[in-house]
Design a protein around this nucleic acid. Sequence first.
DNA 1: CGAGTGTAAATATAGCATATACACAGTATG
DNA 2: CATACTGTGTATATGCTATATTTACACTCG
Lengths: 135, 135
Amino acid sequence: MGKDAKKTLLVPPISKAAPGPLYQQIVDGIKREVSEGRLEPGTPLPSFRLLAEQLMVSLITVKRAYAELERDEIIFRKQGLGTFVSQDGVARSRQIKREQTEALLREALREGYEAGMDDKELLDMAKRLLKEGKE
Amino acid sequence: MGKDAKKTLLVPPISKAAPGPLYQQIVDGIKREVSEGRLEPGTPLPSFRLLAEQLMVSLITVKRAYAELERDEIIFRKQGLGTFVSQDGVARSRQIKREQTEALLREALREGYEAGMDDKELLDMAKRLLKEGKE
DNA sequence: CGAGTGTAAATATAGCATATACACAGTATG
DNA sequence: CATACTGTGTATATGCTATATTTACACTCG
């Protein structure tokens, strides 16, 4: 009966209300999919139009997201063919996320110091959050 | 000899190149000064014009920054009088920074997980950054 | 009233997002 | 084999919103 079966979205949903620009949300979502192995190297990504329709955004928004992912060498594009996950996309993606982790940790620790917290308090908070994340 | 002595700036320098809007940089700078005790409750803050001149930004940028600080009840303003650090400004500021610390830690840990790191790796990275910060 | 303060309105500028039209690659078909 | 077709990515012109500037106004105290 037509196009009711939505198939599992190849990318997570995004929202204008969420923090950060739409194209960045798409970038983050795809980086996560690649990093966690749900999008393997060589796999074709959804076309601009399909992804734009699924996420209810415009073409150029998807284009901008893919452009940034290509700049990071996580994907590559071929005119008239499509967009694909690059061979070392998983390693690239994980490396970027690792650097981002360190940057965020630095920020968090600095903010904690400025709040008057000491090393132990900060580590305890981190441990608590790690446990909470497991539930 | 006039106004050559710049006096120690009551707020840290800002830059259009730095990440985030100018008014946010001012907000963060003042929150830090208050949080770390260099701006005590009751202390008058620089006037809109003075601060705007020192930081080389426009009046409304300072106004917006002060407005956000007043919303957080860290400072209060009096028409025709000036702007001052509120009585519980230090506690307010530290509480906000503490919440921000937790939010940043959550983000960092999630990003680390997506990069394939485990709990121990994350905690070790945090400990390493804590030591680096001490040098 | 004068010199200080904060307040408000009208006006650029930049990033983000949209819609529309264009160019390239593979494939079906007469 | 030439051609049209349907898919892909590409490029241009347009609108919107947050950020920041300029300029003029209103309040407080001496």
